[in-house]
């Protein structure tokens, strides 16, 4: 078997995605196959080529700064799994010192 190119368990941490051991193993196999295919990109000389981040040139596309209606507070929190007083409820993020 070819050397593993991707440490799926580590990348899953970066992506904030809990994977089961089965998922980690199967994604590792799948993505190694994909990355072996992707290695063919090395054959193309791109030393003189600028990366193309966008299909058409878009520079400084800003809209006019015109005040207007936006979502109401009620609408903004309507889909929240937990909300209170018009705000999103989240778990405690600051731990007390021990």
């Amino acid at each position: 078997m070819a050397q593993a190119l991707i440490d799926v368990a580590y990348i899953a941490k970066l992506a904030k995605l809990d994977l089961t051991p089965e998922e980690t193993a199967s994604f590792s196999a799948d993505l190694n196959q994909v990355l072996n295919h992707v290695a063919q990109l090395e054959q193309w000389d791109t030393s003189e080529v600028a990366p193309m981040y966008h299909p058409l040139p878009v520079f400084d596309a800003v809209r006019e700064d015109i005040p207007g209606d936006s979502l109401s507070n009620d609408a903004a929190v309507a889909n929240a799994p937990a909300a209170e007083d018009g705000q999103f409820r989240v778990p405690k993020v600051v731990e007390s010192a021990h």
Binding site: T46, A50, P51, M52
Partner: peptide, 11 residues
Amino acid sequence: AKAQKVRALVA
């Protein structure tokens, strides 16, 4: 970055 450069070649 390499993929974005190859994208330019494709375009």
